[in-house]
Design a protein around this nucleic acid. Structure first.
Lengths: 188, 188
DNA sequence: TTATAAAAATAGACCGGTCTGTCTATTTTT
DNA sequence: AAAAATAGACAGACCGGTCTATTTTTATAA
């Protein structure tokens, strides 16, 4: 992996675990095994640019994972269920250290760093659009609202899962998927 | 207000806006107009103890607000709607700087500071129990699950609201309250 | 193919500032 | 007089970021 990619990967992991403010530049370059010069060579914009690149990498990574789980399933219900399972696996295998890759940064930056929040928004938009395309592909009259509702509930479940160190909130979300899909295309 | 309370209030506001890691002790004491000696006099445990005290204050404050909105409403639907409206007001009047008081800290501390996460969990437990008691008071066969589901969806909506700087996620939650209550006590 | 110039990347010392936390006084209250 | 609270200097570590070399790679020309 290139030095640039290594910086992004390390940053992505650290901000996912403890957020942006608690993740230092020195910590990042030490974990990546690179000198500070390299970091500011690839990311002249400093920490903010690096964080945005890390968010961007999540956009691609999760977007791909979403598509894979969608296309590998026969029904929309199964697809959404697979996405939830994906996060269940991530949570348990990391002992609840790895939650939603962007939520922590989103809350940290909401009032203070508009540029970072914009990056978060781009990731969200991509996830929702990706999900929406899948729902339509599966023949559902799914619109952006349906996909947005699912992601919203997923975010809530991920917050609660990390607080209580339990997958129960996500298991409950899985139970509600059918109902969520049914209710959506009956309402205007 | 006592010096101790002032420290708690200031800390509560700051961690709500930008989290725990980005909020410094010096910033807190400056905003509170107190010397460092006072801070470590009241909170010998340092930053963590102060943050936990701030979380505790949120427990009381929001718990009271919840009860007030519940008792002031005729139906359970109206009560829950009032809670959502409470957050809508907080978000808009603060220009989306003030979201859920504990979510940011919850995500920041989930993997790194167990003591703080425990504080978050105590707040959540209190909110859920308070909500549950209200649902039963209103004659619903509401159990902990119903209240937990509502809070979970509220958390998700609050995250999305801050990302998109919009109250729409919360407005959509309001529309789903009736359905949420109906579905709950029909399932075992 | 080799010599050389230009560009890219690596390396880390260093800067001013801020971090949490400690410590000793001094003032205020009991 | 004793206890509580206020006051802030100070310490050692770390912060993000800048800056100058040095090494490595790439491109070009003989």
């Amino acid at each position: 992996m290139s030095s640039r990619d290594r910086l992004i990967q390390v940053t992505a992991r650290l901000i996912r675990e403890k957020g942006m403010a608690a993740t230092g530049i020195n910590e990042i370059i030490t974990a990546a095994g690179l000198p500070k010069g390299s970091m500011y060579h690839y990311f002249p914009g400093g920490k903010e640019e690096l964080v945005k690149a890390a968010l961007h990498s999540y956009k691609d990574w999760l977007g791909q994972s979403f598509k894979a789980r969608m296309k590998g399933s026969t029904t929309a219900e199964q697809g959404l269920c697979g996405i939830v399972d994906f996060f269940i696996h991530d949570l348990t295998s990391s002992h609840y250290v790895a939650g939603c890759p962007v939520a922590t940064v989103a809350l940290e930056s909401a009032g203070t760093a508009p540029g970072v929040t914009e990056g978060v928004r781009e990731v969200m938009d991509h996830w929702i659009a990706s999900l929406c395309a899948y729902l339509q592909y599966k023949g559902l009259a799914g619109n952006l609202t349906t996909a947005t509702d699912f992601i919203t509930q997923l975010e809530g479940a991920l917050v609660m899962a990390r607080i209580y160190q339990s997958t129960e909130p996500l298991e409950r979300l899985k139970l509600k998927i059918t109902e969520l899909l049914q209710n959506e295309h009956t309402t205007p």
